[in-house]
Nucleic acid binder design. Structure first.
Lengths: 145, 145
DNA sequence: AGTGTTTAAATAGCATGCAATGCGATTGCG
DNA sequence: CGCAATCGCATTGCATGCTATTTAAACACT
């Protein structure tokens, strides 16, 4: 483990991400949702009726990843994909009534995971953490974008 | 995106983790290695000849996840799995000569990813980030462990 | 010795993520 | 207008991660 010292940031972050995902999975399970669906749901709760390409830009994952997630969400009765009269290449994604009804509970569940994760650190520290994370994200993005 | 505010920590961390993984994948690719193999390699570079169960404890992933990673590493000529004379349920994992030869370069590649990720933040900030991350990790672990 | 429990691995099934391709629809430009 | 380039999406193939289950071996305790 001592060897980890030089590059433990990546390891630590990966570990944190897995724990967050597991906690979110547990919190969302009672509502029949999974962590991977959550960003898409947030985007559609915010503005229903977007195309896949719009969602990809908003969520920041690759298009094939979203395509598969949307298929699972369609299978699970969370969304429908309607033809787009303005451009027949794309389709308009709509939430089902059921998905709309889950908004409050799901957001509360996710918020509580976050609150729990940050429970042991002070508010200013949490802010600092978010700030540093944002800076690391943009640094890592530079070369790839 | 405004809705993200309340629970953006999990989202931010997930995003960071994906960027780290992608950067590490790119850095390791020339050496024929993948990010998921790296923790196992570190553990075996540190001490060769461990069992799967020992590695699981050390690395902190689930046993089936490691089993599959080890299969891929075996397929790729990085490890061998020898019978354990002391306990025929388990097998002793050994690095191949080739995997041993990759140590310096792979560690340098991973370290450079880390250095790049942290390039834009001060040393004390990086330390703080690591500390806060560690505290979030142990908080999230509490309920599940 | 014999049986029940624990332990080590393997396997099945699933969710997310990626890169690379293919394909039809649209757009832009000569 | 017509063709080339671009765009939107689907699909394929792969890597990682998880949970749940199975199998065999080792242990423990009567």
């Amino acid at each position: 483990m001592s060897d980890f010292a030089t590059f433990s940031a990546g390891y630590r972050v990966a570990q944190m991400a897995r724990l967050f995902e597991q906690a979110l999975a547990e919190a969302l399970r009672p509502h029949g949702l999974t962590p991977g669906q959550f960003p898409t749901l947030l985007a559609l709760w915010h503005r229903d009726g977007q195309t896949q390409a719009e969602l990809v830009r908003e969520i920041g994952i690759e298009q094939p990843t979203l395509a598969l997630t949307l298929s699972r969400m369609e299978r699970d009765g969370l969304i429908t994909r309607e033809p787009n009269p303005a451009d027949s290449r794309s389709r308009i994604i709509h939430l089902t009534r059921h998905a709309r009804s889950l908004k409050e509970d799901a957001i509360a569940a996710a918020a509580s995971v976050n609150a729990r994760a940050l429970a042991e650190i002070e508010d200013e520290e949490a802010e600092l953490f978010m700030d540093l994370s944002a800076r690391i994200v943009s640094t890592l993005r530079e070369r790839t974008d």
